[in-house]
Simulated assay, not measured.
Amino acid sequence: MDLVAGLEAWPGAVLIRQSGTAYLFVNAAHILGIGLLVGAVLPLDLRLLGFFRAVPLAVIEAFLTRAAAVGLALALATGFWLFTVKPDEYLANEAFLWKLGLLVLAIANIGLQHAGGYRRALANGTVTGAMRFRAAVSATLWLATLLAGRWIGFL
């Protein structure tokens, strides 16, 4: 619990607890990060699943992967910052715990996709069944994480 108290006392947490404007900007940055992440992941996953076949993977993959990485970094940083405002409440919130679990699974799925010869297969113009499966899992996990995040405010 000392760690939780330390997080609450962190100057960044104090700032957004005391300033509606600071909270507004951090929250907006969090939403921007989520939008960038999901807005890049879903089109790529859909393309891997066989949609938009006219769009070459070699053209969109690198850009969408980098855009998703920037979105993920922004969402993680701002999400952690928002968490520090009321860590006790978030840790007691079932939806928040679901969101964290789903987030860990979604990030692990990224690692599995990239460890599975993903870039090499795409360079050859190949989308394997395993890549399609992980793309479906990815889309499902990211959308579930998004829904769990929205659920937090309702508990």
Rank of each mutant, 00 (worst) to 15 (best):
L3V: 12
A9S: 15
A9P: 03
A13N: 06
L15K: 13
L15Y: 15
T21S: 10
L36T: 14
G39N: 00
A40L: 07
A40Y: 03
L46D: 05
F52D: 05
R53F: 01
A54S: 15
V55P: 02
P56C: 00
P56Y: 02
V59Q: 10
V59R: 11
V59E: 10
A62N: 12
A69D: 02
G71A: 00
A73S: 09
A73L: 06
A77Y: 06
F80M: 10
W81Y: 14
K86T: 11
D88M: 14
D88G: 08
D88W: 15
L91Y: 04
A95F: 10
K99A: 04
K99Y: 02
L100R: 04
V104R: 12
V104F: 11
A106R: 14
A106Y: 00
A108Y: 08
G111Q: 10
Q113S: 14
G116L: 04
G117F: 07
A121E: 13
A121S: 02
L122C: 00
N124W: 11
T128D: 07
G129A: 11
M131V: 07
R132P: 04
F133K: 03
F133M: 06
S138L: 07
A139I: 00
A139D: 10
W142H: 03
W142P: 14
L143E: 04
L143M: 06
L146G: 13
A148V: 15
